[in-house]
Lab assay of single mutants.
Amino acid sequence: ALRETGVIEKLLTSYGFIQCSERQARLFFHCSQYNGNLQDLKVGDDVEFEVSSDRRTGKPIAVKLVKIK
């Protein structure tokens, strides 16, 4: 799958939103999709991810998040 990059724009307890670098979009992500310690993730962090689609709504979502050092 194609990896994309973006910036954490909003972060809540169990989910957040990424502002994409490659496209004009804000993508939802669930915190279970982040492969690191959530305490280390904060607004403004650069992340890399794959784009999938929500099974219920069909909308694009970010999965398999990795923080870019």
Score class of each variant (00 low, 15 high):
E22K: 13
S14Q: 07
R26K: 15
D40N: 10
K67N: 05
R56Y: 04
R3K: 08
L2H: 15
S53Y: 08
F29V: 03
F29E: 00
L2A: 04
L38S: 15
I8R: 00
Y34R: 07
E48I: 05
I61F: 08
Q33W: 15
T13H: 06
L38Y: 15
I68L: 05
G44A: 05
R56K: 11
R23P: 10
V47N: 00
D45G: 03
F17L: 03
G44S: 03
Q24R: 13
I61Y: 08
V51Q: 15
V7P: 00
Y34C: 10
T57P: 02
L65Q: 01
S14H: 03
Q24I: 09
V51P: 15
T57G: 11
S21F: 04
I61L: 15
Q33V: 11
K42P: 00
E48R: 04
A62G: 12
I68V: 12
L65H: 02
L65C: 11
G6K: 00
F29H: 01
S21D: 14
L41F: 08
R23V: 06
L12S: 05
D46C: 13
I68G: 12
R23E: 04
Q24G: 15
V47Q: 00
I61E: 12
V43P: 11
E50T: 15
V66L: 10
V43T: 15
S53C: 12
C20G: 12
K67T: 10
F49G: 00
V43H: 02
R23H: 03
G16T: 01
C20T: 12
L12G: 12
K10L: 06
R26Y: 05
R55D: 08
F49M: 02
R3T: 04
C20D: 07
I61V: 09
H30P: 10
Q39E: 15
K59G: 12
D54G: 11
D54E: 10
F29N: 00
F29S: 01
T5P: 06
P60W: 11
V47C: 11
R26F: 07
G58D: 14
S21I: 07
I18C: 09
K67A: 11
D54I: 01
V51Y: 12
G44M: 05
T5A: 13
N37K: 11
G16V: 02
A62W: 01
P60H: 15
G6A: 02
L27C: 08
E50A: 11
G6P: 00
S32R: 09
D40W: 03
C20L: 09
S52M: 13
E48S: 09
R26V: 07
R3D: 01
L41M: 05
R55Q: 14
D54Y: 07
L12P: 02
G36V: 06
D45Q: 11
D40G: 12
K69H: 03
C31R: 13
Y34N: 09
F28Y: 13
L12A: 15
A62R: 01
Q39T: 11
R23L: 04
A1W: 09
E50R: 07
K59S: 10
S53A: 11
R55I: 06
N35D: 03
V51E: 10
K59M: 07
L2G: 08
K59A: 07
L41T: 01
L11M: 14
Y34K: 15
L38I: 07
R23D: 06
C31T: 14
L41S: 01
E48G: 03
K10G: 05
C20S: 13
V7L: 05
G6V: 00
C20I: 06
N37H: 15
V51I: 11
G44C: 05
E50C: 07
D45S: 13
D45P: 00
R26P: 06
R26N: 04
D40I: 04
G36A: 12
F29R: 00
L11R: 07
D40L: 08
G58I: 13
C20H: 14
T57I: 03
Y34H: 09
L27R: 02
V43Q: 09
S21E: 13
A25T: 12
R56L: 14
D45N: 10
R3M: 07
R23W: 04
I61P: 02
